[in-house]
Design a protein around this nucleic acid. Sequence first.
DNA 1: CGCTTCGTTGACCCCGTTCAACACAAGTGG
DNA 2: CCACTTGTGTTGAACGGGGTCAACGAAGCG
Lengths: 265, 265
Amino acid sequence: MLNVSSDVQRQFAVHPTFTARCGIDGMEGLVGRTSFVRRKVKCREHLFHAGQPRRSLFLVHAGTFKISMVTADGREKVAGFRYAGELLGLDALDIPSYACDVVALEDAEVWELPCSELTEERFEFVRWITSTLASEVRRDWNWMLTLGTLNAEQRVTAFLLDLAARMASMGFSERRFLLRMTRADIGSFLAIKLETVTRALSRLQTRGMISVRGRSIDLLDAARMRASLESEDRAGQVRMPRRRAAGGLPFTSTGRSVTALQAAA
Amino acid sequence: MLNVSSDVQRQFAVHPTFTARCGIDGMEGLVGRTSFVRRKVKCREHLFHAGQPRRSLFLVHAGTFKISMVTADGREKVAGFRYAGELLGLDALDIPSYACDVVALEDAEVWELPCSELTEERFEFVRWITSTLASEVRRDWNWMLTLGTLNAEQRVTAFLLDLAARMASMGFSERRFLLRMTRADIGSFLAIKLETVTRALSRLQTRGMISVRGRSIDLLDAARMRASLESEDRAGQVRMPRRRAAGGLPFTSTGRSVTALQAAA
DNA sequence: CGCTTCGTTGACCCCGTTCAACACAAGTGG
DNA sequence: CCACTTGTGTTGAACGGGGTCAACGAAGCG
C-alpha cells in the first residue's frame, strides 16, 4: 500500500545553485543554493500517499497533479489540482507523514526539495515556503466561499475560469485547453456529482459560453462567464427583494471586493 | 469603513521575553524574545478588516473570533472561528493587506505580534508560523471534505464535536458549552441556511444526542454523534446497495482512516 | 476483439432552500 | 411603566436544484 514513490523514476541528481521563478502571488523568490532531485512521474502514478514519511517538498516543473483525501467511510474527495510552478507536500510540513494523496494526471516532472534544507541558513527558502502557505490558505478560503455561495453551474464556471487563468500564467492559451481530470474529479472538488458537472458543461455550451468536446474546452465568452458569477446565488430565485428604497437598485454590480475568481487565480 | 482597529483598546505595551504555549497540533513552541502588545477587543468589535494594512499577527489569548469574507455580490461568508491559542492574520503573511474580516464574538484579548519580528534572528518564531500555516491548510481541507461529503445534520454534528474538542483542549468542559456565534454564522460556515441549522439542532435534540437551549449546548451522547458521521452520506438514501456479499454489512463502522473530526480538532 | 473507464442524457424524487409567521430577549425612548 | 424596534431563534408549508438510478455511446487498451 505504501510502496509507491519507489516506482517513480528517480532521475539524475543534481546539486546546483538554482533559481526557481515561482509565479505564486507575484513572489518571484529565489530558492537559493538548494540541492534537489528531478523526478519524472508518469500519468496515473502517485507522487506520494497519505501516511508515507514526509521527507521532501515537490515543486511541479511540468504536468498536472491531483490532491485527494479519503473520507471516514472510504470515499475519495479531491482537495485540489496543482500545475507547473506550484508546490506539493506543504500541508504536511509540521507532521512526520504526508496527509494526502497526490497523483499525476499526465506525464509530469517535479523537483524534489528535501525538507532538511529548511534550515536557518536557507532563510529565504523558508520565507518563500511560508508565503506560499499563506497564499494557499487564501486560495482554500476562496474555494470554500465559491462552494458555499454558488450553484452547480456557477461552480463549474468558476472552475473553468480559474483553470484558464492558471493556463495563462503558465504561458498557455487561456481560451482553449484540455481538462486533465475526469468529470468525477471535478465534481469531487466542486462538491457536486459527476452528472451535474456534465449537465453544467452541456448547458454552458448550449448558451454559447463554451465549447466542449470531451476534455477539450474552448472558452467562447469569458466575460459573460465572469458576469454570471456575480449575481443569482444558489437557485435562481432572486424574487425581487421586497421593494427597497427607490429605484430598485439594478444588478450592474460595481464589482467591489475581490471576486472568488480573481483571488483564486 | 476602515477606521476600525483604532477603536480597539490599546493596552499597556510590553517587551518581555515571553513563552507562549500553543496547543496547535501538539506544538508547544516558544515564541522567544518577541515584543508584543496586549489588546482587548470588545464583543462585536473588529480586530481588523480586509484591506487594512497588515502589520501584525494576533495570538488569541481569550475569547472567540469570527473570520469572514465578502462575496462578489456583497454577502458575507464565514471562513472559520478562532479560540484561545490560535493565530489570526496568518493568511495575509505574503501580501500587504489583510484578506479577511475578523470580529470578536465576545469580549476578548489578543497578543499583537508585529510582523517586523519575523526576521532571520527569530528563526524559531518563523518556523512556528510555518507549522501553524501547514496545519491551517490541513484543517481547511478537512472542512472542505466535511462540507463536500456530509449532509446538513452531519455538518452540524461535526461542528459541535469540533467545538467540543477545542473546548477540551482549552481546559473547558467538552460536554457543556456556549455557542458564541449566531445560527446564521454557523450556517454560513457550514454552507447551509440558518433554518437548516436550527432544524438540525432540534432533530439532534429529539434523538437525545444533545440538549439545546438557545446558545447553550449539552452533548449527551458524543459517541453516537461521532458514529453518525461515518456513514450515510448526503441525503439518507443508501437504498440498499444492491445486495453486497452476505450479511448486509452493519453500520458499526470500524473507523479506519482519520475522521474529519479528529483531524479538524 | 471484448473489457473497462469515461461521458452524456433522461426520469424521478428528496433534502435543503425559500417564504412566512411567530416567540423571545435586549435596548431605547417616551 | 409600556410601546417600539431590532436581532435572534424556532417551526411549518411548498418548491426546486441537484442527487440517484438507469441506459447508452465513445474511447482507450491489452
